[in-house]
Simulated scan of single mutants.
Amino acid sequence: MQRASRLVALSAAAFLTIGLAACSSSSAEEGTGSGDGFTPITIEHALGTTTIDAKPERVATVNWANHEVPLALGVVPVGMAAANFGDDDGDGMLPWVEEKLEALDAEPPVLFDETDGIDFEAVADTNPDVILAAYSGLTQEDYDTLTEIAPVVAYPETAWGTSWRDTILFNSEAMGMADEGEALVTQLEEEIGEAAAAYPQLEGKTAMFLTHVDTSDLSEVSYYTTHDTRTAFFEDLGLAFPESVATASAETELFSLTQSAEQADEFSDVDIIVTYGGDELIAALEADPLLSQMPAVANGAIVALPGTSPLGTAANPTPLSISWILDDYLKLLAQAADQAA
């Protein structure tokens, strides 16, 4: 009964939203006609094809990080997902988002609570012209429901596998700001290249990213594949994929895999380990009879990121977090590289 009531309410909200959008579109056409120079946009993605007929004025975003694209381009979303990881002050926004809003002299947008999934009614209430989700884990059902509210741009290929570059390019195109998006990518690439050049010890070192490690049970280890954005960022910083990780990743589309600790010797080609945790985690890895044999562990070449802080969150690169965290992250990686054999 609760689900039925929610869907009825959503349908009503979506109907109202579509009606309001139609009125707004009609008014815009009467005022400017085709003279606004906007060319309709068609974007193909993993969940369908989206056409945007008029330049969006009200931009909403769902799921992680998509809101950072419009913010980086000077556009404040009408609504965005609240941060539920790394939010050190509990206000639903990561520090680089707060700083950008302050720079734009803007009030915080509506924050969508996605603890139990997308809040479709809240999204509909913001009356968006477009919904950005190029970096997301939308299901087909999620996508279909959101399209009742406004045109939606989903991930291009793999759920949670969109690079920071494509997140910018897809979302900016959907906003009618493709050129600005390309300029932002170039700017960030130059910034990353200049910063990484100060740490030549990273060049060619191999790195793997362990997922959240359970120190009470080290019989298995899970790690992010090359499809995940955290590991893809390694290449931007001059690091390389270990052959062991690259080979396993080529056989799956998953963004993480799990392997028995008894096969830890397969990771003998890993110079640096990055993971979430602290001194307790490092001590547990070093004390484990199997995992301690991994060269990265034996050499102390471990970057243990505080998983609940902005620093840990920023290891997953996003348009605004890259500049905010880059120097600190590079220093930690360089320290680990210096420990590697």
Rank of each mutant, 00 (worst) to 15 (best):
V110E: 11
A14R: 07
L330N: 05
A337L: 08
P109C: 01
T50E: 03
G307W: 04
R165A: 04
Q201W: 08
E286C: 06
D166Q: 07
Q335R: 13
L71T: 05
E189I: 07
P306G: 11
L7T: 15
A9G: 14
S11D: 15
E57N: 13
L132G: 04
V78A: 02
N127Y: 12
A13H: 14
A150I: 09
F15H: 14
E190S: 12
I52P: 08
Y199D: 11
T186M: 10
Q259S: 09
G277Q: 03
T50D: 02
A337S: 07
P319T: 06
A246I: 01
G33V: 06
Q2H: 15
E68M: 03
Y223G: 04
T32M: 14
L326T: 02
D53E: 15
I325V: 13
T162V: 00
M1T: 15
L311C: 13
A198L: 13
I18W: 12
E107V: 04
L138K: 01
M1A: 15
G176A: 08
E68P: 03
A341P: 15
L311Q: 14
N316E: 10
E102H: 00
T115D: 04
E190W: 08
N127P: 11
Y143E: 01
A83D: 05
M1E: 15
I131V: 08
W164C: 00
T275K: 02
V185D: 01
T32R: 14
I282F: 09
A82E: 05
P310Y: 13
I118G: 05
L188I: 09
A261F: 03
A195L: 07
C23G: 12
S24A: 14
F241T: 08
T42M: 03
L239D: 00
E68I: 02
T225H: 05
P242R: 01
D125C: 12
A334C: 10
R230L: 00
D105F: 02
L281E: 00
T275F: 01
A133N: 01
Q2V: 15
R165P: 07
E220Y: 11
